[in-house]
Design a protein around this nucleic acid. Sequence first.
DNA 1: TGTCTCTCTGACGTCAACGTCAGAGTCTAC
DNA 2: GTAGACTCTGACGTTGACGTCAGAGAGACA
Lengths: 142, 142
Amino acid sequence: MENTTMRIGELAAQAGVSVRALRYYEEQGLLTSERSPAGQRYYAEDAADRVRLIQLLYSAGLNSKAVSTIMPCMDSGMASTDMIELLAAERDRIDERLHELTETRDRLTTVIELSRATRRPPARSAGTVPSGGPPGPAAPAR
Amino acid sequence: MENTTMRIGELAAQAGVSVRALRYYEEQGLLTSERSPAGQRYYAEDAADRVRLIQLLYSAGLNSKAVSTIMPCMDSGMASTDMIELLAAERDRIDERLHELTETRDRLTTVIELSRATRRPPARSAGTVPSGGPPGPAAPAR
DNA sequence: TGTCTCTCTGACGTCAACGTCAGAGTCTAC
DNA sequence: GTAGACTCTGACGTTGACGTCAGAGAGACA
């Protein structure tokens, strides 16, 4: 749509993924590209953001099909009632994983602190996250 | 060590995993079992907890080797200096994933709220997680 | 015009955590 | 002592997101 001036290698570098991955995303219907008459792919500037969003959803445990289903909503900000249900279901799944991950991190932290304590005299404050309670329901950290 | 009275099917049911998975864990050195003279596996009562811990570490993104490396520390609560470094590295990786997951969840929540808002008159309080609250699972590491 | 780098389309390879199946042995109850 | 449920050890199959390779075309530059 915009100035599609980026080639696949450049986009890969910008987004921090492989060229193969970008072709795979296109194959899965997650990413589109303009084609030159000779068949070379060209991308708009905002393609890197889209790729990062794809990666984000992948690492949240969604597969290609799920990503392709919800990507339109992420773009438009609109969703049918059924789609909202689906989005909420995914969100809840992620919430569950957040709790699991938090528990795992806290258990690791406990072992680390314990080991450090028995290994060195009581050091003042560790260098990491305050941790403790479960994940807050929402709102970005930072 | 204790009364190893549970058989593999029962442990699988208790821990919510498949029998195959338990054999796989043993093969990977993550889980041990007593054997009857005829070669049948028997487990202690606390084996279910161990299995759940294994699952927890798996779902935190660790592979079998990493789990087998850190499991002894999780058991004993002791770790060498090198091991502490390793544990801290894993913990930091998990922290990173927590941030990613939190961002993903918040983006999903945003779309959900937005769609609900444009679809219905300003409804009081959504039906799911209390969301909208303060910061996520943890403050940024370091 | 030639060279070099990038890109194209298949198509097979990979890796991890199991799923599944076969054939045989074990255990418990009746 | 036998039926039925459970378990054993291989060993091959599955799945998803790519990695990798081959052979050929595209594009900028001297």
